[in-house]
Design a protein around this nucleic acid. Sequence first.
DNA 1: TGAAATGTTGGGGCG
DNA 2: ACGCCCCAACATTTC
Length: 473
Amino acid sequence: MTVLVWFRQDLRLTDNPALYHACRTGEPVIPVFIDDPLPTSVSQLGSASRVWLHHSLQALTQDLQASGSHLILRQGSASVILPQLLAETGATRLYWNRLYDPASLQRDRQLKESLRQVCEVRSFNASLLNEPWEVLKADGTPYKVFTPFWQAMLRYGIQHQPLPAPAQIPAPAQVPASLPLDSLKLLPHIRWDIGMMSHWQVGERAALHKLLNFLPIGGKDYQQARDLPAHSGTSRLSPHLHFGEISPRQVVWLAEQFLAENATADSGVRHFIREIGWREFAWHLLYHFPHTVERPLDERFTRFPWAENHEEILIRWQRGQTGYPIIDAGMRELWQTGWMHNRVRMIVASLLCKNLLVPWQKGENWFRDTLVDADLASNVLGWQWTAGCGADAAPYFRIFNPILQSQKFDPDGDYIRRWVPELRERSSKQIHLPREPGENKQNYPLPVVDFKASREQALSLFEKIKQPSFRKT
DNA sequence: TGAAATGTTGGGGCG
DNA sequence: ACGCCCCAACATTTC
């Protein structure tokens, strides 16, 4: 009698339903992680995420060890590995926490179906406040607008208090063989990961620490501070949430608790909780509209005339060589740290889609490969929102002016100075502006596109597809 | 979770 | 004192 707990993106011991219920059986528990290259590219982890995963697995291994348990690592298709492990260990139960991306959903459904013959299979919700199918409009259809969705979610509430970490995890008499972590080859050959990871502390304990430090300080005027990329006004919890080092339920629970204990805490904390709501909304949408991973939710955009030959332009954008200081700062922050401030994500995305007319999927792919948080649903929501083809999307005419945005949200230019050293000498007034053609600044490129002209071009192109679609949505 | 163009108002300089 | 112009500052509308 043994329980297999299949870890995926729930790399924590606290509030981990699969692990919790496994321990409650009183039987020996075998935690396992499988590096499973899923067949669809959209489910593959990006390179930055794989680096994070390496460290997160390391942390999980240690935490499990402290509880008397051992994480088993395997590589290959889960539909092959799991039956093997069940046979090998004689386990009679298999527990996991659900994933909600289309490919994992399909795979897990099939697995559940087939393995049910040989053992008890149970799955749990560990990564969302509520199941994506639980909160629906009165007519039973999914929400497409955030505010009513979030109001309904708040009314519905969080159904359970976060679960405690098991005090002790019973180990089997015989621990199955495990691959060494290094053999999963999650780290790159050229060790660019070292610089990136110097910005982060990985693991469940680090995540909790970060949240508890953020609430009292960051909660103060979060609403304004979160828009200033030069300040650490955001929680930076996204990668921890992505790998389940902390659960959204814990985040909301602890934030609510903080509010209850600090009557004077301003609405910043509540606004922060609302951001967790956006993550929830993203998964709600992706669950109900799985095709939006690759195709626009708004069908009219399938006929949008994106630029054909955009390879070189895309590369300039990726490398942070567009000649727009705020854009280049953001893209370089992403490259160097695996993360970008949310306000800047919107600005760089707007430039790519609306001024450079590069299909949003190209930007989405780049973010997916370079972000340590790389959350499929949030990423897709964000890019479709920017392109104007998603749910609750920015109207097509909403085009960010990178200079105005820079002046507004990085008024002293500190963020630009941090990531674009070529411009450090510039005054706070000058630093937002592209290089003038005559300006002697050979190490900083001229702007990749004329903002005003490209804006007008985009407006006229968007105008053409504006007619309502005939298809009912 | 816009930007730019256009419209309106009101204070101050000045003849 | 008054009209006139200029132009911020703000509001509205258009893209």
